[in-house]
């Protein structure tokens, strides 16, 4: 119950934030929220289920391009794109989950890097379908109407921010329910000892595939939101650098701790803003942080704090 209360307060604070800060800061907050969704999603498959993935950027891009291409070809709205992006990315997640049934550790990581690379090549080279290097523009999401009555117009930064905030709340709630369900406990069992998991009757195939689908679908939702709020897609927003950044966020915060990757995402996404002219070195800083955390406290900051508290 306390968890829900703290979360409620945090979201209430974030909801009124745009009234107190400028457009630039609102943009930064919105980007932080995208990364929160991505990091929590990655935590499901890696932190809880123990399956490595460097393909977050790919699923993020699949969600974004689903929105952009559907807008161009079918003139659909964001309300259609949100479920569509989740489903399309989720299906690709299922596809990437299949090698995970046989491969472990480094070998699986290599396959996910290959997948990330293929998706990047497709979105940057298949110009007739994806717009190639230039990407695709997107119009405003348009008015939100109920029975022909316009509730509000999409277009202002704030409206995208609030939608992103609402979707963040929803995805966090779903993820929280997942990891605290029977399925989440099975993911942890698979992470701890896959042989034992099947020996006690757990269907590890189902466990791994559901984790991949949940992870990919969340990244897809983040992609749809990003495409709409940036008013378009370009391939360079969905590279392996995004994947690496999200891995760093999850690991620094603490794998499989739920709150850890959220804090990791907030910290690492805001960090470049604080670095001023050194912001161009952010990947270097992420890299150094990652190496430090992995060697000094592989369980991450929150993982370490929890272990301390348990003692």
């Amino acid at each position: 119950m306390r968890v829900y209360l703290i979360a409620l307060l945090a979201f209430a604070g974030l909801a009124v934030a745009p009234f107190g800060i400028g457009g630039y800061e609102t943009n930064v907050l919105m980007m932080v929220l995208f990364f929160v969704i991505l990091a929590v999603g990655l935590d499901l498959v890696t932190g809880y289920c123990g399956q490595f993935s460097f393909a977050t950027g790919a699923f993020y891009g699949i969600g974004a391009y689903t929105a952009a291409i559907m807008t161009r070809d079918f003139n659909t709205t964001i309300w259609v794109h949100l479920p569509a992006g989740a489903i399309v990315a989720g299906l690709f997640g299922l596809l990437l989950g299949i090698p995970a049934l046989r491969l472990k550790g480094h070998f699986l990581a290599i396959v996910t890097i290959a997948f990330q690379t293929i998706v990047y090549l497709v979105i940057s080279q298949w110009t007739s379908f994806t717009g190639g290097q230039v990407g695709l523009p997107m119009p405003n999401a348009g008015p939100v109407t109920v029975f022909g009555v316009t509730l509000f117009e999409f277009g202002s930064l704030r409206s995208y921010y609030w939608l992103t905030l609402a979707m963040t709340a929803l995805t966090l709630l779903i993820s929280w329910r997942l990891v605290n369900s029977r399925l989440g406990r099975e993911w942890v069992a698979i992470r701890d000892d896959e042989t034992l998991a099947s020996a006690v009757g757990l269907d590890t195939t189902r466990g791994k595939l559901t984790a991949f689908v949940a992870y990919a679908a969340l990244a897809g939702v983040a992609g749809v939101l990003t495409a709409h709020s940036l008013r378009g897609v370009t391939p360079d927003d969905y590279t392996i650098w995004i994947s690496a950044t999200v891995v760093a966020m999850m690991v620094v915060g603490g794998r499989g701790t739920f709150i850890g990757p959220i804090l990791g995402a907030v910290f690492l996404a805001i960090l470049p803003e604080l670095l001023g002219k050194f912001a161009e070195y952010k990947m270097l800083i992420y890299g150094v942080l990652l190496v430090l955390v992995v060697t000094l406290m592989p369980e991450g900051v929150v993982g370490r704090l929890r272990a301390r508290a348990a003692r």
């Binding site: 406990r185 942890v188 069992a189 701890d192 000892d193 499989g256």
Partner: peptide, 14 residues
Amino acid sequence: RLFHSLSVEDNLLL
């Protein structure tokens, strides 16, 4: 073999 990150009770529950 046990699920080493889980409690004794959760090991049984699984």
